[in-house]
Write a protein that binds this DNA or RNA. Structure first.
Length: 462
DNA sequence: ATTAGGG
DNA sequence: CCCTAAT
């Protein structure tokens, strides 16, 4: 089989999928960034951004989808990054292609939406609170998706035909039969990959997929079809998952948002329409979704606040003190873990300062509450602190120590370096030793990744 | 929609 | 962390 990565792009004409980028066969982990699984306008697909990661070594598949926590059998990923728009069933045809080929197709579970489904089965997963950071290592930094476009599609106008409005069925059943039997993709689509092989569908493949699907969509193995979806629980080595179906029980954030939105005028294009039901609205931008509700938070809507909060805060856990968060500002103070910081620094070193969204999407897509601006803020603070005190202010350190992160020197060093390279305006630049304004080794490296650096020559007062 | 800047 | 202005 050929070993070339296939880049699948914008198969918009194909019905319902649009895969922006596929990545490298041959690497230990293959990851495929599925930029946009476009929703079929007529149908009930949802537009999703996410990553499909396939760890060949461990035969683990991760589907990291912003806004959803999907479990494809091996690990559950709660990349609740919230980019859901509209919502409904999920139909990962494109993904199926890949996933199917890899052994245990049978075990692949239908994913569940965090936001809850809509008409038929309202699948709602309450994420375990233990979701610290299930390692998305395979995704992180392994590859870079040029996700410059964000053409989220407004999905799901509720025109689905089979809308029975089974809004009460707690559990949906996945049509496993489909995945097994009706897998045309296996041969017909030319997928030849196995668990250990590279999987690189071509555009043609996708199209084939499409067409097959067009009629009877046999190859859609894990469609959260509105009809039935069986959801079984499968544990994986790495990820424990506890899935609990509930009837449409959005997380706090969701609730917040929905309530807010419901009460106030829809401020955006989303909120398409859900259905006659209440349909928890899902916002797309993390900012919004993060539930940074400006002012009013109708508490009345907050049902099981506890549960939701718990799951919502996922790895937050103890770090967040919600007791005091009733304060006007800073509703959620979320401590930055060292890992996060490292990741951030890493990302910055890769993409450069200012590419916050990129970094967020690529490295923090699983951290719900880290918005691009948060990253920026954090960076700013990092730079400040890094340049401010090096190691002299023991007092300060001590002070912070018992309550905060020590922040290893290595990290600080990196921060300083980066800060030198990318002087953050308005922040005291760390001792700029002899920084060569034009060419800098590290900078050059970044340059290719991040062609335009507006950050540096920003304040060019002539 | 993103980012910078300021609070 | 939040908000706003600028782009």
């Amino acid at each position: 089989m050929d070993q070339q990565p296939h880049l699948i792009k914008n198969q918009a004409d194909t019905k319902s999928k649009r895969v922006e980028q596929a990545v490298v066969p041959g690497s230990e982990e293959e990851a495929i960034e599925v930029e946009h699984l476009l929703a079929e306008p007529k149908s009930d697909h949802v537009s999703v951004d996410g990553f499909l990661c396939f760890d060949k070594e461990n035969s683990e598949k991760h589907l990291k989808v912003d806004g959803f926590g999907y479990d494809y059998g091996w690990k559950i990923n709660c990349g609740m990054d919230c980019d859901i728009q509209g919502g409904a069933d999920i139909k990962f045809e494109a993904l199926d292609g890949w996933l199917d080929e890899v052994d245990e197709v049978d075990d692949i579970q239908a994913g569940q939406t965090l936001s809850g489904a809509y008409e038929d089965f309202l699948l709602d997963v309450e994420l375990p609170e233990k979701f610290s950071e299930l390692d998305y290592g395979c995704c992180d930094g392994s590859h870079i998706g040029n996700s410059s476009t964000e053409s989220h599609s407004p999905v799901f106008s509720g025109s689905s035909n089979s809308t029975s409005g089974i809004s009460e069925s707690p559990i949906a059943t996945v049509q496993e039969s489909d995945c097994k039997n009706g897998l045309p993709g296996k041969n017909g689509c030319g997928y030849e990959a196995t668990a250990t092989n590279e999987i690189h569908p071509t555009t043609e493949d996708l199209q084939n997929l499409n067409e097959s699907d067009d009629d009877e969509k046999p190859l859609v193995s894990l469609i959260l079809s509105k009809k039935k979806a069986k959801v079984s629980t499968k544990l994986t080595k790495g990820g424990m998952l506890c899935r609990q179906m509930r009837l449409r029980k959005p997380t706090v954030r969701y609730i917040d948002e929905s309530s807010r939105l419901s009460s106030t005028a829809p401020r955006s294009k989303r909120l398409k329409v859900q259905h006659d039901n209440e349909l928890p609205e899902v916002l797309s931008e993390s900012r919004l979704l993060r539930g940074r509700v400006k002012k009013v938070v109708p508490k009345s809507e907050l049902q099981s606040d506890d549960d939701l909060t718990a799951s919502d805060y996922e790895d937050d856990k103890k770090k967040t003190k919600r007791s005091k968060m009733s304060s006007d500002r800073r509703k959620h103070q979320r401590m930055w873990t060292l890992e996060e910081v490292v990741k951030l620094v890493d990302g910055i070193s890769q993409y450069g300062v200012g590419k916050w969204t990129a970094i967020k999407r690529l490295l923090f897509s699983s951290s719900v509450y880290r918005t691009p601006i948060d990253l920026r803020d954090k960076w700013r603070n990092l730079v400040r602190s890094s340049c401010g005190h090096k190691r002299n202010n023991k007092e300060v350190e001590r002070n912070l120590k018992h309550t905060a992160r020590p922040l290893p020197k290595t990290v600080v060093r990196r921060v300083r370096e980066l800060a030198t390279i990318y002087p953050y305006p308005n922040v005291c630049s760390p001792k700029i030793e002899h920084v060569t304004p034009t060419k800098h080794p590290a900078r050059a490296k970044v340059a290719q990744l991040c062609p335009r650096g507006k950050n540096v020559s920003r304040k060019n007062g002539t």
